[in-house]
Design a protein around this nucleic acid. Structure first.
Lengths: 166, 166
DNA sequence: TTTAGTGCAAAGTATTTGCAGTCTC
DNA sequence: GAGACTGCAAATACTTTGCACTAAA
C-alpha cells in the first residue's frame, strides 16, 4: 500500500525542484561512469521514468517519439545503463529481456503473472530485504534480486471450467 | 538445512520402494495427462532428478547418454513436462530457458548469482509461502514463483579492488 | 492399428556485432 | 579534434515448426 511517487510527470521534465528525476539521476550515473549524455539516452530515461513495471526493449523503442533512435541503440543504451546501475535487466515469463529503473526512489514492485493469459498484477508486499542483510554478511556486495509469481488468474479459471464442461 | 532426498540413485532406477522417484512421479503425471511414456522422456526425468538447481536445455541434452535423443526432442518433451506440471520453466540471469522439477518432494532452492563471475550459490531460507496464501485468497490458482538474487561475490570484489589500485 | 512422439531440416525471434559516419566532451 | 555513440546491415543464438517416419498403447 505504498503510494507511487512517480508516473505523474507533466511530461518528461528534467529539473523538478527538490526530488531529482530519473533523468537527472541517470545522467549523474552516466557521467560518473565516464559515459556521454546523448539524446537517445535522455529519451530512454524519460520513458523508463514513466513506468513502474519492467519494460520490454521493443516496447521502450516504440514509446520513444518516432525516429528517436534505432532499435539497436536501445539495446546498446540499456546495456550501458545496466553497467552503471541505472536499470536492472530481468527475464520473466517469456525469455525476452525486461528493464526497470533501479535508481534510488524507485520502489521495487513485484508482479503475479497469469500462466494462462499473461496478464500481470502487482503484489503489494514482499519481505525480501532481510535476505539482502544475510547475503551482505556472507560477503556479497551490490545486491539486487528478481522475484516473480505465477498463477492462473480468476478469469482464466472460469474460462477453463466452462470449456471443460461444455 | 533440509537433507537432500534424491541425487543418489544407483543409476536411473524406476522403482525405489517407498519414496516415489522423480521418474515414477513424472510417469504418473504423463499418464494422467494422456501422454505417452517414451525412452527420451524417462531419460530426461532421470537427468532432472539428479539435480536440484535449474538446468538449461543444452545442458540437459548433453547429460543424456549420447544419442539418447535429438535436441529438438528435449525442447518438446520439456514443453510437455511443463504442461502437465512436472517442471517449471524460468529465465534467470541470461535469457535462456532453465527447467527444474516441481514434483512433490522436490524442495525449492534459491540462488545468489555473482554479477561478475556468474557463480551461483544456494540461499537457504526464503519466506515465500505466505505470499502464495495471500494470492490464493485473491483468486489465483496453481501458484508458483521464481526468485533469484544478484550480487558481487567476495572473490570478485577482491579481484576488482586489486585491479583498480594496481 | 491408431496416433502421439521423434529426427532432421528449415524457419522464426530476440539479441549481438562490424564498420563507416556523427556528435559529445 | 579524439573518441564515444549511432545507424544500417549482417551475423549469431535460442527456440519453434513442418513433414515423413517410428513406436507406444
Amino acid at each position: 500500500m505504498i503510494a507511487a511517487t512517480q508516473s505523474n510527470h507533466p511530461l518528461g521534465t528534467v529539473s523538478s525542484g527538490n526530488v531529482p528525476s530519473p533523468v537527472e539521476l541517470g545522467c549523474e550515473r552516466l557521467k560518473a561512469g565516464g559515459m556521454r549524455i546523448t539524446k537517445p539516452r535522455i529519451a530512454l530515461l524519460e520513458a523508463l521514468g514513466r513506468h513502474s513495471a519492467p519494460l520490454a526493449i521493443e516496447q521502450l523503442h516504440q514509446e520513444l517519439s518516432r525516429n528517436a533512435c534505432d532499435l539497436v541503440t536501445v539495446y546498446r543504451c540499456l546495456a550501458v545503463f545496466e553497467q552503471v546501475g541505472i536499470v536492472q535487466r530481468s527475464f520473466l515469463h517469456n525469455g525476452t529481456a525486461q528493464y526497470e529503473l533501479t535508481l534510488s526512489g524507485t520502489p521495487k514492485r513485484y508482479n503475479v503473472v497469469c500462466k494462462s493469459c499473461g496478464a500481470a498484477e502487482p503484489v503489494d508486499y514482499f519481505p525480501v530485504e532481510g535476505i539482502h542483510e544475510v547475503l551482505r554478511e556472507r560477503g556479497y556486495a551490490n545486491l539486487s534480486h528478481l522475484v516473480e509469481f505465477f498463477g492462473v488468474c480468476p478469469a482464466c479459471q472460469q474460462a477453463n471450467t466452462k470449456r471443460h464442461s461444455h
